[in-house]
Amino acid sequence: MSCTVLSAPLTAMSQQVYRCEANGQVSYSHEPCLGAKAIDTTPTQGMDRMTGQSQKGADVRKAEHDRMFAEALKPLTGKTPEEFEVAKRRINHSPLEKLSCSQLDGALPRLAQDAAHAVPEAKNSAEARLYKARKAFRDLRC
Rank of each mutant, 00 (worst) to 15 (best):
M1I: 04
C3E: 15
C3T: 12
C3M: 14
V5T: 14
V5K: 13
L6Y: 14
L6M: 09
L6W: 14
L10G: 05
T11E: 13
A12D: 06
A12M: 06
S14D: 14
V17A: 07
Y18G: 03
R19N: 06
R19Q: 15
C20M: 05
C20G: 01
C20T: 01
E21P: 09
A22S: 15
G24M: 07
Q25A: 11
V26W: 05
S27D: 09
Y28D: 05
H30Q: 12
H30M: 11
H30D: 13
E31W: 08
E31T: 06
P32I: 07
P32L: 01
P32M: 02
C33T: 04
L34I: 08
L34F: 07
A36S: 15
A36Q: 15
K37C: 08
K37Y: 12
A38L: 15
I39A: 10
D40A: 09
D40Q: 11
T42L: 07
Q45E: 15
R49Q: 12
T51V: 11
S54P: 00
Q55L: 13
A58P: 02
D59K: 03
V60Y: 08
V60G: 09
R61Q: 13
R61I: 10
R61H: 00
M68H: 10
F69K: 14
E71W: 07
E71N: 06
A72K: 12
A72T: 12
K74T: 10
P75Q: 07
T77A: 11
T77H: 08
K79I: 00
P81I: 05
E83Q: 15
E83I: 06
F84S: 10
F84A: 13
F84K: 00
V86A: 09
A87T: 03
A87F: 02
A87D: 10
A87R: 06
K88D: 13
R90L: 02
R90W: 05
N92G: 06
N92E: 14
H93N: 07
H93M: 11
H93C: 09
S94H: 06
L96H: 07
L96K: 10
E97P: 04
E97D: 13
E97R: 05
K98S: 00
L99G: 04
L99Y: 13
S100D: 13
C101M: 07
C101E: 02
S102D: 11
Q103F: 03
L104A: 03
L104G: 07
L104V: 11
D105V: 01
A107M: 13
A107T: 01
A107V: 04
A107C: 01
L108T: 04
P109G: 01
P109S: 08
L111C: 03
L111K: 08
A112N: 14
A112M: 06
A112V: 12
D114L: 12
A115C: 03
A116N: 09
H117P: 01
A118R: 10
P120G: 02
P120N: 10
E121A: 15
E121W: 05
A122C: 01
A122G: 02
K123Y: 01
N124G: 08
N124H: 10
S125W: 02
R129Q: 11
L130N: 05
Y131I: 02
K132M: 13
A133Y: 03
A133N: 00
R134A: 02
K135F: 04
K135P: 04
K135I: 00
A136Y: 02
R138P: 08
R138A: 13
D139L: 05
D139E: 07
L140E: 07
R141D: 01
R141I: 01
R141V: 00
C142H: 00
